[in-house]
Design a binder for these strands. Structure first.
Lengths: 335, 335
DNA sequence: CTGAAAGCGCTTACAG
DNA sequence: CTGAAAGCGCTTACAG
């Protein structure tokens, strides 16, 4: 592999001049620059990343900290990882994967080994232990998620409150006066787990304002349980015919259950949902929905992290990404 | 951040002695070692990765090259990425994500920038362009996939031929004499795309040997097309009642279509399939199946890459990971 | 068994 | 506008 010295010799200049044209931080005459560029091309030279990192004390890499070993819903995960890597590269950064079960340890090691310039934490919840080493070392980081106490770290997330309001409005606009609110298990809401609670509160508030009565249906974990619960809810004649779903597993299962019961959408039931965009790719999920926005979220995260690294002491940023409603004609207008 | 010099001072030894205990490549007396360890702990020291990389010319990182921007089926992708990262860490390696649409360019840059010690290429097909810069630079790499011409690069993959044979046997053992062979679009087989063709050939051979007549059904891309095709195939009274499915989209869609037609498994139809394990996590896929083995494949890949880096000139390795059949009582025994 | 010195490939003041 | 020199934090022969 060619070094900067080889290039300098080839171009007939000093190593520091080569470095100057490489970094672009110093004026170099066009002639000299041309000679250097030619030598670089001829030798297929490119800067040794480790050497540059050592000299600049900037690694130009981000650590992406994946939270769960058993990712709750990995289709979304892959979309985020790829979007993050793409966005990072556009800013000249690489992305290294930190997947240890003990994320705190992974973060600590990456910090003390100076492996990364900053972190992006995926799937952050309240009291996330990974925050500890970061806020302690005052290391640049951006959270994806919106914990109550972000401990002075920047954060970005989908605007779940807006999503809930959009979905409620969509049902209310169609003239419905009541709807089932199909939810995650209640623990998720009481444990203060950020996105769920934000969605929940906003849905309730908006429903109240729009005079929509919400009938909560908590759906337990596991395919069979999901199926049974949905079936019971749909069979109960007391229950509303509109469904507002905030539970990916329920979204995926619903068509099966509708099939079991011979119910049609929107003729028999009106359905809106919040779910990962990936879900819609492989399945026939013809429900009007608000989808997650991995690309927009990833780009915002990378941009925020870049700025944070550039100015460590600027004020803490929070950013909410506005989702959009994808209409799929699954709601019937009622008088 | 503490440096090796700080540790040396704290421990009252030279920097090279500290380095010796850190690398473990030289005998150091237990007493001295203890002093160094104590200093390391006290100062929370850990080696600066970039500096070590520069000194050893080993980055201790692998580049994982993800092929498609639009991942065909990203649930599987996430599982592979996490498994790779975990396996790498166990060997002391980090994993950097290379997601550029132009994978060849990404590989080239990582090589000339000395960013990685080797590559793992995901989802390799015949004539994969990413192989070019790797085989040209004779850079250590392991392919996940089994192209006809691996150009002297190690490769590992699921044993799709064995998978096909297992599934055919399962149907034949239950006494069936014929089965629909639900497949990807034909282009996938004619384009020589490795796993599909291996599965296909093996299924046909085994079926012939077992006296099982296979009726091929090609399923086009897109949810609606999948649904229509499956429906037509199931409604056709000429078609066998056993299904051998090698198409994730068809696997996911089948329950809907069975529901549409009021068919029960295994009473009305017997079903076996090959699909990504992730599929079964979120959905009720109660079909006997052979699932992909991301963890085993990832571990093999990492291990092979480690060995390849250690001995660049050892003979090329190919490795097939034996999958296992997951019985789910979806096949009816016939006379 | 331990330490002084050179070197890995860069960048960056500092002179000129 | 260009170049000589020091330094980033390690490792590794080489002496002792």
């Amino acid at each position: 592999m060619a070094t900067i010295g080889d290039v300098a010799r080839e171009a007939g200049v000093s190593r520091s001049t080569v470095s100057s044209v490489l970094t672009g931080r110093k004026y170099v005459s066009p002639q000299t620059r041309a000679k250097v560029d030619a030598a670089v091309a001829k030798l297929h030279f490119s800067v040794n990343a480790g050497a540059r990192a050592l000299a600049t004390s900037r690694t130009m890499t981000f650590g992406v900290v994946v939270r769960f070993h058993e990712a709750e819903f990995s289709p979304a995960l892959a979309a985020y990882l790829i979007a993050l890597s793409d966005a990072a590269r556009e800013q000249g950064y690489s992305v290294v994967l930190l997947t240890e079960p003990d994320g705190t340890e992974a973060v600590r090691r990456a910090i003390s080994g100076r492996q990364v310039d900053g972190f992006i934490l995926l799937n952050v919840v309240d009291d996330d232990p990974r925050l500890e080493p970061i806020s302690q070392a005052r290391y640049p980081a951006v959270l994806i998620g919106m914990p109550q106490d972000a401990r002075g770290v920047d954060a970005v997330d989908l605007d779940f409150a807006a999503a809930a309001a959009m979905l409620v409005d969509h049902i209310a606009d169609a003239g419905h006066r009541e709807a089932m609110f199909v939810r995650w298990p209640e623990e998720l809401y009481s444990s203060g787990s950020t996105y769920a609670t934000r969605f929940d509160r906003s849905a309730r508030e908006r429903a109240e304002r729009r005079d929509l009565r919400l009938v909560p249906v908590s759906v337990p974990v596991g395919p069979e349980q999901v199926r049974t619960t949905l079936r019971a809810a749909l069979e109960n004649p007391e229950n509303p015919h509109a469904l507002l779903i905030h539970n990916d597993a329920a979204v995926a299962m619903l068509p099966f259950v509708l099939g079991d019961l011979g119910l049609e959408v929107p003729a028999d039931r009106s359905v809106v949902s919040l779910h990962a965009a990936e879900l819609a790719r492989l399945y026939v999920l013809s429900f009007t929905s608000v989808e997650s926005e991995p690309v927009a979220v990833a780009q915002a995260a990378v941009e925020m992290l870049g700025k944070r690294i550039a100015s460590p002491d600027s004020p803490v940023h929070k950013r909410l990404i506005m989702p959009h409603l994808e209409p799929r004609a699954s709601v019937e207008t009622v008088a």
